[in-house]
């Protein structure tokens, strides 16, 4: 099979697999392996305690399809160990495909277990996609400082970006679908009031007496989610503005509802020019030059 440098510009392949810096993949891998370590300790913490209660377990389709054994303490502790060791190995950069897919499989299983006791969250989609696709890039010579670009890197980053945008856009699709495809039902409902009553901790309490403001926020949220798909075509300053908008959106949901989407937020880095980090760091921390040789005449001779 012949090799190409890059897919033709403007083609479908060029959109799905644009040539992008491999250094961005290297940085993103590092960040995500650190994030997974945080995630299993601070966000998805329930698999081990829940595995004590098989009577509450209802397997997801994934577990049924793959004939995965039901959770048990030995299984969940093993998964935990694999995740911790796998992330540490991933941070070392060795065997990126093997280690990456082991972490991806273990984390997918870990999260699936957490979601098999009743509640399914949707903030982990982009992260799970990222863990599966980033290893396909393989070794990145030079790591964070790599000067190489590739379609392999561009494809992996594009898949993560699709995962991020899908989290918002498809949320709007489901809200509309559940209303019999009437896009006005959800924004005109009392869902934010419901959420504020259920989570009486954040700043949302201040908004509870103002249903008109809550409705305006719901309309704003719906429009933003529908428009989110445009982000996949933005570049430069427009993309920066869009990213900052969505980060602000998440800060807002945290302060009002105590709902964070941290696993999605961290994947926004797939849009960021992370490849500039290493040059930026080197420019501010130049290597020390070798000491200036002392002129011979300055050497004090001693007898």
């Amino acid at each position: 099979m012949s090799a190409l440098d890059r897919p033709p510009p403007g083609s479908v392949a060029g959109w799905f697999a644009p040539v992008r810096p491999e250094a961005r993949v290297a940085v993103l891998r590092t960040v995500l392996y650190v994030f997974v370590l945080v995630d299993v300790h601070a966000i998805i913490r329930s698999p081990i305690p829940l595995s004590r209660h098989p009577e509450l377990y209802r397997p997801l389709d994934l577990a049924v399809l793959l004939h995965l054994p039901p959770p048990s303490l030995p299984l969940t502790w093993t998964l935990y160990a694999v995740l911790v060791l796998g992330c540490v190995a991933g941070l070392s950069g060795r065997a990126p495909r093997l280690v990456g897919w082991v972490v991806a499989a273990a984390f997918t299983w870990w999260v699936a277990i957490a979601f098999s006791y009743g509640k399914v969250d949707h903030d982990h989609l982009a992260l799970v996609v990222a863990l599966w696709v980033l290893p396909t890039v393989g070794a990145v010579p030079g790591g964070w400082s790599s000067a190489r670009w590739s379609s392999q890197a561009g494809w992996a980053l594009k898949c993560v970006q699709i995962g991020v945008v899908s989290t918002y856009f498809l949320s709007a699709v489901v809200k509309t679908k559940n209303a019999g495809w009437d896009p006005t039902t959800w924004p005109e409902s009392y869902i934010l009031l419901w959420a504020v009553v259920r989570r009486p901790h954040g700043l949302g309490q201040l908004l509870q007496p103002y249903p008109g403001v809550l409705h305006a926020m719901q309309w704003f949220s719906m429009v933003a989610e529908v428009c989110s798909v445009v982000v996949l075509w933005l570049r430069g300053r427009a993309l920066l503005v869009a990213a900052l908008f969505w980060l602000g959106f998440h800060v807002f949901t945290v302060t009002v509802l105590y709902i964070h989407f941290a696993p999605t937020v961290v994947c926004w880095l797939a849009f960021a020019p992370l490849e500039r980090l290493a040059p930026w760091w080197r420019a501010r921390h130049p290597r020390l030059e070798p000491p200036v040789p002392v002129p011979e005449r300055a050497v004090v001779r001693t007898r």
């Binding site: 012949s2 890059r6 897919p7 697999a17 992008r20 670009w149 590739s150 392999q152």
Partner: peptide, 24 residues
């Protein structure tokens, strides 16, 4: 925010089959 694709850089080749399976 996203880096523009440069004209002259060290670009790793991709095979046609590699491109096809990625797009699919």
């Amino acid at each position: 925010m996203t880096s523009a694709e440069p004209d002259v850089v060290d670009v790793r080749p991709v095979s046609r089959s590699g491109l096809v399976w990625r797009v699919l």
